[in-house]
Amino acid sequence: MSVNFSLDYFALFGLPRRFDIDEAELDRAWHALQAEVHPDRHVHLPGSERHRAMRGALRVNEAYATLKKPLSRARYLLDLAGVDADEIDNVAMASGFLIEQMEWREAVEEARAFGDVDALEQLALRLRMRVDEVTTLLAEQFDSRENREAAADTVRRLMFLDRLRCDIDDGLAALDD
């Protein structure tokens, strides 16, 4: 195998298995690995070896895409620990968060309905701050307290916030033209 498929994504990039990672380090390791396996480096290989390099390049990109974003990184950490974030049901979630969800939804839907670009951008900004808070909490839960149950709950919140961001972006994209 060109890239050791038995390694987890963190090990592949030579990073410690943590939520809080050094993003610059991740980028550097990604570039260094792609410099070896990228198809551009193997244009003249016979088919079988181009495929080998291609499998490596695909794996490296998949690993990078997973670790780069906090949400997919967190889900991957849960995966490695054998916890499925999707299985935790909504009922168990704090009612405070459910109310917050509804408020966000309403605000986004209203801004979209009125075609209010400023309001959507304002919401996007607020959302970014909220996501930062939640990711900080996640780092604590994963890395210092090592409380995976709590982390799984926080991941669910982050999933919701991520969907909200997609909605806001879609709303803004629709108002672009």
Binding site: M1, S2, L33, A35, E49, G56
Partner: peptide
């Protein structure tokens, strides 16, 4: 010939990957 050299190629690539991770190639980029 490609088949005969497959294992050889794999070893060489493994080594260059390890070198890349060890940071030996990063400076060359």
């Amino acid at each position: 010939l490609a088949r005969a050299t497959e294992e050889f190629a794999a070893r060489r690539m493994d080594r260059s990957i390890r070198a890349a991770l060890a940071g030996q190639k990063i400076g060359e980029l």
